[in-house]
Nucleic acid binder design. Structure first.
Lengths: 337, 337
DNA sequence: AATTTAATTGGGAGCGTTCCCAAATTTAAC
DNA sequence: GTTAAATTTGGGAACGCTCCCAATTAAATT
């Protein structure tokens, strides 16, 4: 990195402290077989010259880079429309850094995905990676397994016959809790607006909704899918307003906001005329007018957990038990429902 | 990366195609001195086995990793409140990947910064890095220079006696344009709300505002700083509403939104009673009620440009001329002013 | 056809580590 | 005090690549 070639190596430190390269290596790697005296002497020299062993050389011989990748197979616009990815990346990065791992980013639009994805996945610079979206094709998953890659999924994958490590949240439970709350509030004609029907997050939230409705003996009302976007929520809400539902439970906050805007445009008020509930507790949810009743998931923790599983369990311990962690969600009651 | 040690190396490819390691290396690196016939033969073998040269080994000998770092020295919450960083990171990553470079992320809160920052900066795995915030301490900049690091700043640094590479936008011009527009609209008592007074983006926007006001012979009104946040904008607006200004030009959209909410709360309407203008053209700006008149900057392009400068000019060409690029902004007139 | 010149090819060394094994030293045991 | 065992230390080899230089081969010149 410096242009001035003043970078010391193990051999230099060895000479400066009157021992051999191997001994310095042992000191750096905390190997037990080195006497207290020499250890201290070497440590002093290391500190004095602020020596840092060359990570590249180390990676070459250990076959471990201490770097993981984040794969975001998503069209560009969505990555910054929703804070989900930003928070996820953040959660992953902070935890990884804490465990002394670096993080490299692989963004890929739907057009060029194969290229970037394959480069990232086959990068020997990477010890493993986190796939930041579960809607990954089954063939792709199968290939990863065939090639024995180390990776963790964020979100339950649609197929589950493969022993896949993943982190997910209690989507079903969240859907159930919210629906139960709405029912208990006295609403009967409660509609559910799916996000993207291929994503398990939407599927599971809907399953929770359906369970609660069935338990209460109420007929489920499923609207067209809103694709997890504000625009989608707006359009779907407009479409179904004639059906005079009493409450709409949207599979995401962004859709809930879109729906709310359609309702307000109609001159109706929330929650008096129609109640709106979301999912995620995105940062906008609390500040929206009216503040959104929603189901909170902690995306930062999801990211951190994914990093932890990948690094601690898969890379360092190489345990072969499959780790599937489901993080809790909680009902956040505000004013919109 | 694979557990199965089926990874081929140069020597394997050489054997499989009946040439030497060196020749394969030449083919991979597009060296001219290799005959058409052998080149094709080797290429075929490479394609057949889907061979990818080991980046770590390559990095060790070339002393270049083809990876750059992004340093985000920012408190965690801000990184996802504003889409600025998400977009910037995105712009950098896409361009870097396009130039066949990887990107690693270094987030650092104000508490642990020295640690993470120093690790990132001294990482021999990194060919250079982009500092995603100009409010970097002068001592730190001086140190970077002393150690001959390769880096690019996003945003003009507060001190400019060092030959520092940076990407910035026409903040002064943006401030000027907006103020000129407001004046031309007939407003006289136009206030400016600074973001964070240490950041050159705020300073420059204010300078533009002051220039336009001076030219029109109007007295400048500077409010307390809103710290670039919605909350800040809200609080500052509340504080100054008694002064009956006709328009508030905020140094960011988030502050403008906060200010707008304070105004709406007061039962006043925008822009009839008081006009509001922002800066950035964040994605919320167009969707806010009322849609925000603002100054557009293209953060994605800023990121891409920073990556380009770092990689093409500093790393690959190692030109020693200082590159300082100022990207254009444009006035976006909507309904809030 | 012989010789010079140019193009192509192969092997050695080295990048800075870690790991293994043997040598040297210290400590323990009889 | 001698031998055995345990601890500490040093040097060689390897990781997979690039680069340099010498050797080989092909093309050009007389």
């Amino acid at each position: 990195m410096d242009s001035e070639n003043n970078h010391l190596n193990l051999e230099d430190i060895a000479r400066l402290s009157g021992v051999s390269r191997s001994t310095v290596s042992r000191v750096i790697n905390d190997h037990p077989n080195v006497s207290q005296r020499t250890r201290e002497r070497v440590m002093q020299v290391i500190k004095k010259y602020n020596f840092q062993p060359n990570a590249v050389a180390r990676a070459l011989v250990t076959q471990r880079s201490r770097v993981i990748g984040i794969l975001v197979p998503h069209i560009i616009t969505e990555v910054f429309t929703e804070p989900f990815f930003a928070m996820l990346i953040q959660g992953i990065t902070l935890k990884a850094n804490q465990l002394d791992y670096g993080v490299t980013l692989g963004l890929t639009s739907h057009t060029d995905n194969t290229n970037t994805i394959h480069r990232l996945i086959n990068d020997p610079l990477l010890d493993g990676f986190i796939v930041a979206e579960a809607s990954i094709s089954p063939e792709f998953l199968a290939q990863l397994h065939r090639e024995n890659k180390r990776y963790v999924l964020v979100g339950r994958p649609p197929i589950s016959d493969l022993p896949i490590h993943y982190v997910d949240v209690e989507n079903e439970q969240g859907g159930y809790l919210m629906t139960q709350y709405l029912i208990q509030k006295g609403y009967c004609r409660i509609a559910f607006m799916p996000g993207r029907i291929t994503l398990t997050s939407s599927i599971d939230r809907q399953a929770g909704y359906e369970r609660a409705m069935a338990e209460a003996g109420l007929p489920p009302i499923i609207t067209p899918a809103g694709n997890f976007t504000k625009e989608g929520g707006y359009l779907v809400a407009k479409q179904i307003l004639s059906q005079k539902v009493e409450a709409i439970f949207c599979a995401s906050d962004m859709m809930a906001i879109g729906a709310a805007e359609a309702i307000k445009e109609q001159g109706l008020s929330i929650p008096e005329d129609i109640a709106i509930a979301g999912f995620d507790d995105a940062s906008i949810a609390a500040n929206f007018q009216p503040p959104l009743t929603t189901v909170r998931q902690d995306v930062l923790t999801s990211g951190a957990t994914a990093a932890e599983i990948l690094i601690e369990h898969i890379i360092e311990n190489s345990s072969d038990t499959v780790i599937q962690k489901i993080l809790p969600v909680s009902l956040i009651v505000r004013e919109s429902a």
